[in-house]
Design a protein around this nucleic acid. Structure first.
Ligand SMILES: [Zn+2]
Ligand SMILES: [Zn+2]
Length: 733
DNA sequence: AGCACGCCGACT
DNA sequence: GTCGGCGTGCTC
């Protein structure tokens, strides 16, 4: 009497389709649920698949349909909430369903491993009898602590909290505590030892705005450096914590500092799960499972980078996206999703509050706030008596600049050091010099595989292309005319370091860039004198801008930030301003208002003046006007098709053909730019081209992309061409 | 994406 | 004669 049924399976393949399979012999319909994984035969191989649907209308002839090999899960690994999110990713980013759904899973689950965490010993409070521990203060302390931790802790948590196996062993002997094996608990234990800080007027207003509305309540919290955003976050989530819910805190790629974690840990009696890039696959799976199996017994705070937004969280009740403007929220390969946007979607679908916090909000979020999609809350005062660093512009045009930095600025450094303070020189360019050139014939050190110059490095000496990683020994003569007068042109971190060391022999010069911080704790080692408060000079790249506190840094000098002023990328100015503010924020974080000086050849640039004389907010509004005038995002929506090939012109031809094919499907309100060569056409041996698709209406763009999906995936005849689609691209690269 | 299948050049 | 190059097409 049972009617035959089929399983619609999604595979982790770049195939924009699903595949139907028969169930196992002797199995029944209710053995299968959407969101379970199965192993299936696929061609000659075996693949992990995800059940998308259970149905009785196969899309091919039934005799071609094979049965699955086995069912991996007893219960779904993806809830219907996450399945819907995966389908949403497919609809929005137009990548194959399978790939979208599989990116929601931790790597080990994608590979078909069973959804089991490693096991670890846990301790449970069995019985409270204070008399039995009267003479044992450590045992008493453990019981008290255990009571606070909801009567259960893992072995590791107990050790972290300073208890020894012998203390616990004695309690087990007294039968006050029992031990059992359970899923590995990698969470840090929060302990509410710290009270909420007093809020200033602005913070109070902010908290009121965040809490006054129930349900989906997106808030853009625009707060200048040092205005106490974190305290607002902490107080905003406290009710979710009291209700033992889950809270998701997204942070930038390198923004997870011990200080941040400690703030959460010392405030809340909650489990704190960290999902950062340092975890291995098994640890990540453990954390994911722990979040996905959360029970309403103890609050859980999940702190993680971009991909943490895909964590299964059945009791999710609040989301925070810190430094929402940060570029690391945008995935730059595969499914090019934006973690911040996904966070907003999740909050909307769950009907919960979300805070997007930043000192320098992205124009996208600012626009959403201005059109009242988000509540806009500003914190303009620095907490305490710290005064903001003034942004000064230093005109370099009529100055002598020997090694990339003006003499007068060197004098400022000298004064700073004499006062016993520290100085920071920021230059977003590692190596000794960006170019090696020959004054006799004009030869320059170009990379063979890229339209770029090879950077000159001295420590150790070599030429290095930062775009394709090609390395080459340093020539002593011009390869072209054999002149021996070849020389470095321009300055990078190494050259500045050398020059500053020469000029300030009595002080340490510390270089922080990707090359100097290779080892595991190299960065912290190097920064030791800075933390000790010694007068010294820091020279470095963006690495210095994030997540560090340098209380003794009282002078910040920024070199070469003007390279973004005239970029082809319309977002360059926005990004530059955010970077400038972030770097400037390193100065005088605690002390007597520091100085932040921008050395530039374009001292007259009106937008730079706006930033210096007004603030980021004023600049952002001006940039929004420009975007509006030129119909650029956030006033228009874009998708970018990138293509590349080892053969010149082939990628462009491919995009031309694509454009021809999709043009007939074009409706009103869709326009194209290109195909054009990418800003750096040749990169790592591949010639790159791009085609922009634009519309003023998101829905029209989405509709059009949906219609051209089959054409994108079908276009044949260019087998050396690789292509990708980027919805809401964040740069032109 | 894999992987098989198939059709042409060069090599024991 | 056959080994292997990669262009083409399919996977329920
Ligand atoms: Zn020469
Ligand atoms: Zn290169």
């Amino acid at each position: 009497m049972s009617t035959p049924f089929y399983l619609r399976i999604a595979l982790d393949k770049p195939l924009n389709q699903t595949f139907d399979y028969e169930p196992l012999a002797n199995s029944r319909m209710h053995d299968y649920q959407i969101g379970m994984r199965v192993n299936v035969p696929f061609g000659q191989r075996s693949e992990v698949g995800l059940i998308l649907d259970i149905h009785n209308q196969p899309d091919i002839a039934p005799h071609k349909i094979k049965p699955i090999k086995e069912r991996i899960d007893d219960s779904p690994v993806l809830s219907s909430e996450l399945m819907k999110l995966g389908l949403w990713l497919h609809e929005y980013y137009h990548q194959p369903v399978g790939e979208c759904l599989f990116t929601l899973l931790p790597v080990l689950l994608r590979k078909g491993q069973t959804a089991k965490a490693t096991q670890e010993k846990h301790y449970c409070l069995e019985h409270l009898d204070w008399q039995k521990v009267e003479r044992a203060p450590r045992q008493k302390a453990f019981l008290e602590w255990l009571q606070k931790q909801n009567h259960k802790v893992s072995h590791k948590q107990a050790l972290d909290a300073g208890f020894t196996p012998s203390i616990i062993g004695q309690l087990i002997d007294k039968q006050l505590v029992s031990e059992l094996w359970q899923d590995n608990f990698n969470a840090l234990c929060g302990d509410s030892v710290e009270q909420a800080l007093a809020l200033n007027k602005e913070q109070e207003q902010a908290l009121k705005g965040i809490s006054e509305k129930n349900g989906f309540n997106p808030v853009l919290l625009e707060g200048v450096t040092g205005s106490g955003k974190t305290e607002v976050y902490l107080q905003a989530i406290s009710s979710a914590v009291t209700q033992r819910k889950q809270v998701l805190v997204l942070i930038p790629e390198i923004g997870l500092t011990p200080q941040t974690v400690q703030r959460f840990q010392q405030r809340f009696n909650a489990d704190i799960l960290l999902l950062h890039s340092g975890l291995n696959d098994q640890q990540r799976l453990n954390a994911w499972l722990q979040a996905s199996r959360h029970k309403n017994e103890k609050a859980q705070i999940i702190i993680g980078t971009r991909s943490a937004v895909f964590t299964e969280m059945p009791n999710l009740d609040f989301i925070i996206v810190d430094e929402e403007h940060d570029a690391s929220y945008k995935q730059q390969e595969g499914i090019r999703y934006h973690g911040r946007d996904i966070a907003v979607i999740r909050a909307a679908k769950r009907n919960i509050p979300i805070i997007l916090g930043s000192a320098t909000p992205s124009l996208d979020s600012l626009h959403n706030a201005l059109v009242k999609k988000y509540q806009h809350i500003r914190l303009t005062q620095r907490a305490g008596d710290a005064s903001p660093a003034n942004l000064e512009i230093y005109d370099i045009r009529k100055q002598s600049v020997e090694h990339g930095i003006a003499d007068e600025l060197l004098q400022h450094i000298e004064e700073t050091l004499e006062q016993g303070d520290q100085a920071l020189v920021f230059i977003n360019r590692r190596g000794f010099a960006p170019t090696l050139y020959c004054p006799d014939c004009g030869w320059i050190s170009e990379c063979k595989r890229c339209d770029a110059r090879m950077t000159l490095h001295q420590k150790p000496a070599h030429l290095h292309c930062h775009h394709c990683d090609h390395k080459q020994t340093l020539p002593h003569q011009c390869p072209n005319c054999l002149s021996t007068r070849i020389q470095a042109m321009g300055a990078g971190t190494e050259r500045l370091e050398t020059h500053l060391e020469y000029r300030f022999r009595r002080h340490k010069v510390i270089r922080i860039d990707r090359d100097s911080t290779q080892g595991k704790d190299a960065m912290e080692q190097l920064l030791q004198p800075v933390h000790n408060g010694e007068p010294c000079i820091l020279v470095g790249t963006q690495m210095l801008a994030k997540g560090h506190h340098f209380p003794k840094v009282n002078l910040v000098i920024m070199l070469n930030v003007d390279s973004g002023f005239f970029s082809a990328d319309f977002r360059a100015m926005e990004k530059t301003a955010q970077l400038i503010l972030q770097v400037a924020g390193r100065a005088g974080r605690e002390s007597h208002g520091g100085r932040a000086i921008i050395q530039t050849e374009f001292a007259d640039h009106p937008l730079l003046h706006l930033l210096s004389e007004e603030n980021y907010h004023a600049l952002a509004l001006a940039l929004l006007e420009e975007r509006k005038l030129h119909s650029l995002p956030p006033y228009a929506h874009q998708a970018l098709v990138r293509a590349d090939s080892p053969n010149p012109k082939e990628a462009e031809q491919y995009l031309h053909r694509l454009l021809q094919n999709i043009k007939p499907l074009t409706e009103n309100g869709i326009s194209f730019i290109g195909p054009l060569p990418s800003p750096m056409e040749l990169r790592a041996g591949r010639f790159r081209s791009q085609l922009w698709i634009r519309s003023h209406q998101r829905s029209r763009l989405q509709n059009f992309l949906k219609n051209i999906e089959p054409l994108l995936y079908q276009q044949k005849g260019f087998n050396k061409v690789r292509w990708s689609l980027d919805v809401d691209p964040s740069d032109h690269i």
